[in-house]
Design a binder for these strands. Structure first.
Lengths: 355, 355
DNA sequence: CTGAAAGCGCTAACAA
DNA sequence: TTGTTAGCGCTTTCAG
């Protein structure tokens, strides 16, 4: 029995294309990579051979040869809850879409914070939020892997990040309630361990302060973003001896729950209670009264992160090819971007008409 | 200026490990791949060298050398709606988790049905549902790329698929309502273009037939799964001259909307109207009354699909290595799996107490 | 403008 | 058990 040399079946390779078009593989490579120094007649021959043979260059060979990888990993921490949110889907959508546009491959990592990331072959990483996985971030930074963080403004690390102006958004939400004449304004927070929730609380406080409204701790209800906790907060809020007339809720999902509770308790919205959410989750559109909310440009944030990562990746390979040395503070510096969040007024808030 | 030979910075490679541990690269390769024929003392030396040098084998080189790729693409069609659902997230979660377990890389493709898939370097494909993208499926099958379809039972193609027994689930839901004494049972469908929605309708009809309950077309409300259409269906349903006493809704998200509408219209649930959903979406747990529903094992389905794909991939590489030729109908045959859906009884249904 | 040839890092066939 | 060596398919010098 004769030994067969090749372990796996042969795919059409650059060699076949070269043979078919009567040029060298180098020339084929040139037309693949659009390197301009190819005679037009040759480039046409090669191009048509590629078509005929349905040739697709092997990314593995390309990457092995170039040392570059255009695989983008999106790291989503798999901690309780996050991954069941509108937020996660929007992120995936945004990143996914932009990757298709920029011809990057999107590798999805649903990881818990303890397991170190397997970074084999990854060209860049997008960390969505960082809760427990700061170590993973520092790790990849140390290894020189281009990284960007989204939905978390990182002050103390030399890394690009793109976040939403949660404090600003919250502030404008509360300002709106104040303009409507409300003075007793409650806040149902999200999980205060997340930067987003903390910043929203901050914005809430700032708006009250600037308007000389005394902060009342009994008007602040902490939750973990879950509907269950939103429900219980809403009950306490409404049944309180001196109930607030308006409430700013840290997420639309929770705001909808609050509306439901209010109705169950015989309250009318917005007559008895003005409610404002955060997210602009499409769910808020349905139901009897449209939810006024703060829109955060999640998709845009996700898309921007891919672009920024792409920039970092190109930068890195340029440097490796003998470009000028990395100058700190130059164009190579990480970018820190804060995207504005915008108030969307619908029907769930009403001017205060009390005494 | 001296030319620098290497275009990109040198990473630690198998050669470094070999040198550090005083063996050949082959031996190093053997311990990496856990091929047993290595002297224990050597394996230890190599292992510790790998640790010391923090060596991670290049997947690109590995794949180039083996011709195998363990990249799994998850194709989610980006048509309106699907990607905003509980369903999509569960799928991603399930597939993502199992990929991490089996050490497969998950490539996420959010694609519209028209664009041909870029299959470069993909070892296998999971098609989540197939609506408009049947061509993409046939394409990858033709190219011999291991593929599996989830959430769509494919009869007419030689491909593995894993779906939920939607008809069965629907039938047991409606049976439950019948057992409770209901005779006027309505159904709010999902997007009938999806197999899931069509099968649920089928199950609804079957249950009625088997129990000799006359099918009433005015009790069937077609929707596209959106909350908006659910709302309008619910309004028509409730305001009808001869309203149903129970309704089976094709998704929990819609069922929640129906509950909301019922309450707005002054109906009590479950006293005035029994409601049963489909999905076991955790949202159904909150709210004043827990939603009775049909649980579909989405995560399990997703996980199974990865396992099956993994099987197909191994099978393929075994065959390529000179294993016995593919025998149709043998162990290599595609598997078609139907997972049962299970009724989850909570508080949204009540025995019929009418005349 | 082109092509020969030297890698990229790894696996696998074969010989020892 | 082990090491030698020939690829895997592509990019990139460097010399025409």
């Amino acid at each position: 029995m004769t030994r067969i040399k090749k372990a796996h079946p042969k795919n059409i390779s650059i060699v076949d294309v070269a043979r078919a078009s009567g040029v060298s593989i180098t020339t084929v490579s040139r037309v693949i990579n659009k390197i301009g120094t190819v005679k037009e007649s040759n480039r046409i021959k090669v191009a048509s051979a590629i078509k005929d043979l349905k040739f697709q260059p092997s990314i593995f060979a390309q990457r092995l040869a170039t040392g570059r990888s255009n695989v983008v990993a999106l790291v989503i921490p798999r901690y309780e809850g996050v991954f069941y949110s509108f937020y996660a889907l929007e992120l995936i959508r945004g990143v996914g879409t932009m990757c298709e546009v920029l011809k990057l491959d999107l590798l999805l990592h649903l990881t818990d914070a303890r397991t170190p990331l397997s970074l084999r072959g990854v060209g860049g990483i997008i960390f969505s939020d960082i809760i427990g996985n700061r170590v993973q971030l520092e790790d990849s930074l140390a290894k020189g892997i281009p990284s960007v963080v989204i939905n978390y403004y990182v002050d103390d690390l030399d890394v690009s990040c793109i976040a939403i102006d949660n404090a600003g958004g919250a502030e404008s939400a509360v300002n709106y309630l104040i303009e409507l004449g409300h003075k007793k304004i409650a806040h149902i927070t999200g999980d205060i361990m997340t930067q987003a929730a903390a910043k929203r609380l901050e914005g809430y406080k700032r708006a009250l302060e600037k308007n000389n409204i005394k902060l009342r701790n009994d008007y602040i209800f902490e939750t973990d973003y879950s509907r269950g906790q939103a429900r219980s907060a809403a009950e306490r809020l409404i049944k309180s001896a001196d109930p607030a007339t308006a409430v700013f809720v840290a997420s639309d999902a929770m705001a909808l729950e609050v509306m439901a509770v209010a109705r169950e308790l015989g309250k009318n919205i917005p007559d008895d209670l003005s409610i404002i959410g955060f997210d602009d989750n499409p769910s808020g559109l349905y139901g009897p009264v449209g939810l006024t909310t703060v829109r955060q440009p999640l998709i845009r944030m996700a898309e921007e992160s891919v672009k920024e990562l792409n920039r970092l990746i190109s930068l890195k390979s340029a440097t490796n090819r003998g470009g000028s040395a990395m100058v700190s503070g130059g164009k190579n510096a990480p970018r820190k971007i804060l995207l504005p969040a915008e108030l969307v007024i619908r029907e769930s808030c009403k001017p205060f008409s009390g005494g």
